[in-house]
């Protein structure tokens, strides 16, 4: 049995996932990062995208869409602090798409009105989250 990592994916609302895994691949600001057991202690910022978790001798992979957040590695324990996360099989693609088109419309509107930056940023963040969900759901 290979050495494993304890992977925890936590959102503000609940603990989404806990499992003994062999590898975690997460989207960081500078690209993708793969974490194997015995990784050095690390703290990093994640961007919206797809997070993969490999376990059971690489036979099983769980896919997640995450909306950005933080990741900490410490003594074979990976904690993912995500603002929002969803297991690929539980993503509601239809809803995410709907959200995407609505948000795009709203953003175009806001840009025209030259609205406050805050709202636009919020929309952009939500949009990226929807895009990440769709992307992950489609790759599955």
């Amino acid at each position: 049995m290979a050495r494993t990592l304890l992977c925890e994916i936590v959102t503000p609302e609940r603990v989404l996932y806990t499992n003994e895994v062999e590898m975690v691949v997460a989207p960081t600001l500078e690209g993708e990062i793969g974490i194997l057991p015995l990784h050095v202690p690390l703290v990093t910022v994640l961007k919206p995208g797809e997070l993969r978790v490999r376990y059971n001798d690489g036979k099983d992979v769980d896919w997640f869409a995450i909306s950005g957040g933080y990741l900490q590695v410490h003594e074979d324990k990976v904690i993912v602090l995500a603002d929002n996360a969803a297991l690929a099989s539980q993503i509601d693609v239809g809803r995410a798409r709907e959200g995407m088109s609505k948000l795009e419309e709203r953003m175009a509107q806001l840009k025209q009105d030259a609205a406050e930056d805050g709202i636009l940023e919020d929309c952009e963040r939500d949009l990226k989250w929807c895009q990440a969900q769709v992307a992950v759901a489609e790759r599955r």
Partner: peptide, 27 residues
């Protein structure tokens, strides 16, 4: 505590972390 590696760097991480921390307090 061991030495941590930060990506991109500690300052950036902190910059992102603090607003989220305030959000968790409100939540």
């Amino acid at each position: 505590m061991p030495e941590y590696v930060f990506e991109p760097d500690a300052g950036t991480v902190l910059e992102r972390l603090l607003p989220t921390y305030v959000e968790t307090l409100i939540y």
